[in-house]
Nucleic acid binder design. Structure first.
Length: 726
DNA sequence: AGCACGCCGACT
DNA sequence: GTCGGCGTGCTC
């Protein structure tokens, strides 16, 4: 039994004493564990145990009649335990929705009410007087050819459940169970499919020609119609009565995307994302498992969802960092999706306008097959890109004259403008010009950010807040804000274009539910034409009216500490720039920088992402970074700096003892931001050419780390294929 | 993780 | 004497 506890072991139990149910791998069981009981997953049956017989206890109850996890998901989870060197109990917990983890039951079906012969004979009018609600229900039942579900009744006012019960009692209705989590009724309508261009057609034909496992990298510039390719491939899976699983990044799963799928596909679609209630999540999970959902769209944890009749897996924006879990069980949903597809022997499509270097390398070693969509759908042209040299055009409040003129020009031409700045708040620094004092967070190695609207100083790393000081705490001098965030840009735009409403989208303005959609609608409806925002803007949203994109500060991340930061920067650039000029209008992109000669910027602007990637990958190869080597990162954090380092020092000693010559061990070193939320963070990096050798090492190392006493005094984790080195 | 046990210093 | 903090070990 895999039990939720941070130990690498699984636990042996005897069958339950007084339960007739047949134990099967994949069922959940409630077992005694120490002083209390826990819910675990039965992952195998054996007729012997290495545990002394008197220590073995009995399973209390088998919670499932049938396994909730099928053999394939069990295998996936077991493989993930080995690959990520993570406790089985926690891995299995990640495969289940919360309600099932807590011991709840599967949703096996919904109630349906069928008109009986007696009910058919009874005229609604004969009930009208004494029981108007019953009459109404009876009438609806007749209108819907004799079968009712809660969907038809929900709109009724009053206590319709009681009236319904009365009708069942009188034997006018028969209560039945649909047997499925979803009761989808096709409406017989299908949204219009757009005309395909040649490369879309080629991609669809290539994928459709081969039913067995194959991994495709769908490399399509923004607006090239990747989603249309997904939809067609899903449609052909549907024709064979097969389900499709679609994984998207966290903020990519918007109501807009779901609408688009619902309009086009007349089948049951189950969504799995953090915005759902626990019950809705469970229902959609069950609908995937029992086959009543034909398409499942979810964020990374959906990669573990059981599929009744799998046919296709799609990973959209496969380069996106949110597909990698960043705490606890640090899995890559993209990599697990490929594993799943191989195991199920079905195709998997990885889509992106800016493919990860890992996937590009898999193309060149012919593990993945490349499908390119080089032109924009509908014949839209690529935007013109202009670099604004801030050394010549000194900006005020973050905006240079050429940028302001371009904004004016596009406003005059009735265009929309998207300005991107990945920094919220008013200004990132509050300093005293007199004594040089800069206000820093008490709990982090970071500066407090000025939020003028709220009149507060906020730490963006731990959330700490304080009032805005009126004078320097040290010398009582006048304080000055340095640099700019979205709040300041918004104000500046308000002064420059007083007649234009500005729509700002960042975490501060969209805290309330539905606020994002409300603001996006202002842009889509044309009410506002100046759009300003952070990362939130760059993913998952289409802005057909945007003719100009301005990148206010290109220099953030130009000199990153991480070997991956240039890749990330380039991806953000291309994704943001891709918002410009989609349909019939050509777009323009303006990039403000203090370093116009920076080689990364030059190649990106001049030659595009593909060329950039080629060159940057060559640098990675020479430097021995992924995808040409394999990494594992041992992270430790502790309130006392020494605890983290003592552990990592000891871990290093063990590593040196175990390591073979093709492994490199780097560190321990403090994390780039060493103190965060009052905890000191440090790490040790393992690097190797041969994946198998790295994993052999990790296996024994992990056991030795658990045995270290110092490992108890610090919070630590192993991160396989880390996405960020901090 | 969550819990118990045991050791040690601080206080009624 | 007893209370409670922390380090350590164990959970089938």
């Amino acid at each position: 039994v895999a039990l939720p506890a941070p130990v690498m072991r699984i636990f042996d139990y005897l069958p339950p004493e007084n339960q007739a149910l047949q134990p099967q791998a994949g069922q959940r069981v409630r077992v005694p564990f120490g002083k209390s009981t826990r819910v675990g997953v039965l992952i195998g049956l054996h007729n012997h145990s290495d545990v002394p017989p008197r220590q073995l206890r009995n399973v209390l109850t088998i919670l499932d009649v049938e396994p909730v996890l099928d053999a394939h998901v069990l295998k996936l989870a077991k493989w993930a335990c080995r690959y990520y060197h993570h406790p089985p109990g926690e891995v299995f917990a990640a495969t289940l929705p919360k309600l099932l983890r807590r011991g709840g039951t599967l949703i096996r079906g919904n109630s349906l009410w069928e008109l009986t012969d007696a009910g058919r004979d009874k005229t609604p009018d004969s009930l009208r007087k004494r029981a108007p609600l019953q009459a109404q229900i009876l009438q609806i039942a007749r209108d819907t050819s004799g079968v009712l579900s809660t969907r038809e009744l929900e709109s009724l006012s009053g206590d319709w459940r009681r009236s319904l019960a009365a009708l069942v009692e009188k034997k006018y209705l028969d209560e039945k169970n649909s047997g499925h989590a979803f009761d989808f009724v096709p409406v017989g309508r299908k949204g219009a499919s757009p005309v395909l261009n040649d490369s879309q057609r080629l991609a669809i034909e290539t994928i459709g020609a081969f039913e067995d496992f194959r991994a495709y990298l769908l490399d399509g510039v923004t607006g090239s119609g990747k989603t249309e390719v997904y939809l067609r491939c899903i449609e052909s899976a549907l024709e064979k009565n097969r389900q499709s699983l679609v994984l998207v990044p966290e903020i990519g799963l918007t109501p807009q995307l779901l609408d688009r799928f619902r309009r086009r596909l007349d089948v049951a679609i189950g969504a799995l994302h953090s915005g759902l209630s626990d019950t809705d999540r469970l229902r959609n999970w069950c609908a995937s498992r029992d086959g009543s959902a034909s398409v499942i769209i979810g964020t990374r944890s959906a990669v573990f969802t059981p599929l009744a009749r799998p046919g296709l897996i799609i990973v959209d924006e496969e380069h996106d960092a949110s597909l990698k879990q960043q705490d606890g069980f640090r899995y890559s949903a993209r990599d697990l999706a490929v594993w799943r597809a191989r195991e199920l022997n079905i195709p998997v499509i990885l889509g992106s306008a800016t493919p990860s270097f890992e996937s590009l390398e898999n193309v060149s070693t012919e593990r993945y097959r490349l499908l390119s969509l080089p032109e924009r759908a509908g014949g839209a042209k690529q935007p013109d890109v202009h670099v604004i040299d801030l050394r010549i055009h000194d900006p005020s409040d973050g905006l240079s004259q050429p940028l302001i003129q371009a904004i004016r020009r596009h406003l005059d031409a009735n265009g929309q403008i998207l300005l991107y700045l990945n920094r919220r708040g008013f200004a990132p620094v509050l300093m005293c010009p007199g004594c040089g004092n800069i206000t820093e967070c008490r709990r982090c190695d970071a500066r407090m950010v000025v939020h003028q609207g709220r009149s507060r100083l906020v730490c963006h790393h731990c959330g700490a807040e304080q009032g805005l000081p009126s004078a320097c705490p040290d010398c009582e001098g006048t304080l000055r804000t340095v640099g700019q965030g979205t709040e300041r840009i918004e104000q500046a735009l308000g002064r420059l274009f007083p007649e234009q409403p500005v729509v700002r989208i960042d975490r501060d303005t969209t805290r309330r539910r539905g606020e994002i959609e409300r603001r996006l609608d202002m842009i889509r409806g044309g009410e506002a034409r100046l759009l300003l925002g952070t990362q939130m803007l760059t993913k998952g949203h289409d802005f057909p009216g945007v003719t100009m994109v301005g990148i206010i500060d290109a220099d953030q991340g130009l000199f990153g500490t991480d070997f991956r930061s240039s890749e990330r920067l380039a991806q953000t650039f291309i994704q943001v720039a891709g918002r410009a000029g989609r349909a019939d209008r050509p777009g323009e992109v303006f990039i403000q920088t203090w370093f116009p000669d920076h080689p990364l910027l030059q190649i990106l602007v001049r030659d595009g992402y593909g060329q950039f990637a080629q060159q940057a990958m060559e640098e990675r190869r020479v430097a021995g970074w992924p995808p040409f080597t394999h990494l594992a990162l041992l992270r430790a954090e502790s309130a006392q700096r020494d605890n983290a380092f003592t552990f990592l020092d000891e871990a290093r000693v063990v590593a040196d003892e175990l390591a073979t010559e093709n492994l490199r061990i780097l560190g321990p070193a403090p994390a780039p931001m060493e103190r965060r939320s009052g905890r000191y963070r440090a790490q040790l990096l393992i690097q190797g050419n041969d994946r198998a050798a790295v994993h052999r090492f990790l296996k024994t190392w992990r056991v030795r780390l658990d045995a270290l006493k110092s490992s108890r005094r610090t919070r630590w984790s192993l991160d396989i294929d880390p996405a960020e080195l901090f």
